[in-house]
Simulated assay, not measured.
Amino acid sequence: MTNFLVSSFSLSAAPRNSVSRIQQELTIAQKQVATGRFADVGEALGVTVGRTISMRAEMSNIEKLKGANTSIAQRFDTMQAVLETAAGSGENLMSSIISNGSTDEGIATNRRLALANIGQLVGVLNSSYGSRYLFGGGKTDTVPMKSDIVNDYATSQASGTVDTAWQTFVTANAGGDPSLVTADQMKSFLDNEFAALFVTGNTDPALNTWDLHWSNASSSQTQARIGESDLITTSASANDDGFRNMMKSYAMLANLSGESLSDEARQVLTSRSVETLSTGLSQVTDLRSEIGIGQERISRANDGLKAQTFILKVAIGKEEEVDSYEAAIRVTNLTNNLEASYALTARISRLSILNYL
């Protein structure tokens, strides 16, 4: 006959070990049900986990691009809004010039509107979004228009150069009397001395009078990537032809229309201001169209990024996701096993040899 020992401690320890193991497995299974992924992706995928890491990094880059695109789109929205305001003011002035004619009251009204439009256009060109100036060209951290124009155009260096050029011309060609300036002389002044005050883009910086007296902006542009290989221009410049022509028209009226001119000379001034303003407004419309094209490109780029994100999510899911039905069944089975282990452990813990003496 063989003798062996029976220990109630050994009997109770076995179920407790089983409970601990089942609890660990249940925790993992519950996490998989909650997340839909392997609890430990690295352990589950092994050496192939590098693929999902790479895809997740690509998704992260796409999300950054989408965030940057949102900022650019809002920047474009702001540009469109302020340009619409500037264009509206220019069109109102043009209507006033045409309807008011050359009467003293009409001239005074047009001059007042021109001065107001200078201030408004300066404000538009100094617009910013997110601490970056919209019309600074490549210099997005610099206020585009000269500070003295911002403070008061009438006392600014820009206005002073127009007045000086006019006085010099009148002295040389009409004995200092503006009323003696002929129509041909007015045309000559506007085409030469006056036009020379709005020059930019010359290889000789000393000749870039627009840069010297009006603008701090750069004529270069900033660009940003909106897709994997898609670049877009994200800024405009206060040096653009449209803005310079609008300002040129306003300065004609603000600085010269108050002079005692002959009817012929005034007619030249009025018609030239309308012509120049019309050209400027057309050029600003072209700029707004370019911005609109940029907005459409961003929209298309975002659609492409969304499609890429979807494809990557599907690919990652195939690698990392668990079968939700199987995971739920496993949780149920483990829960049942755990409850059975608890019951068995409780019964064994109540066993005692004293019950059989």
Rank of each mutant, 00 (worst) to 15 (best):
A343S: 14
S215W: 01
K66I: 13
T168W: 11
V268D: 04
G201T: 06
E228A: 15
G176L: 07
T171D: 07
L113M: 02
A265Q: 03
R225K: 11
A81Q: 04
G36F: 04
L253I: 00
L207D: 09
D163E: 03
L357I: 15
S299F: 05
L121K: 02
S8L: 11
V6T: 14
M59C: 08
I316D: 07
E91Q: 10
N208M: 05
D104G: 09
L5W: 09
S219D: 02
K313F: 07
L45M: 09
E105S: 13
K31F: 14
R16I: 15
T200F: 02
Q283S: 05
G304I: 12
A39N: 06
G201C: 05
S249N: 04
T164P: 05
T168K: 08
S260V: 08
R16K: 15
T70D: 13
T48V: 09
G88C: 07
K64G: 05
T335R: 12
I97H: 02
Q267C: 05
G50K: 09
N202R: 03
L354G: 13
G160R: 02
E63A: 13
S20F: 12
S89L: 04
G130N: 06
T332Y: 06
I97G: 02
S20W: 10
R112I: 00
N337Y: 11
L26D: 00
T2V: 13
N110K: 00
R272W: 03
I22G: 01
P15A: 13
Q221L: 13
M59N: 13
R272H: 12
K146D: 04
L197P: 03
G175V: 15
I353H: 09
A29L: 06
L115R: 03
A217H: 01
S249L: 00
D323I: 08
V122T: 02
Q32W: 05
D191I: 02
G227E: 05
A57Q: 04
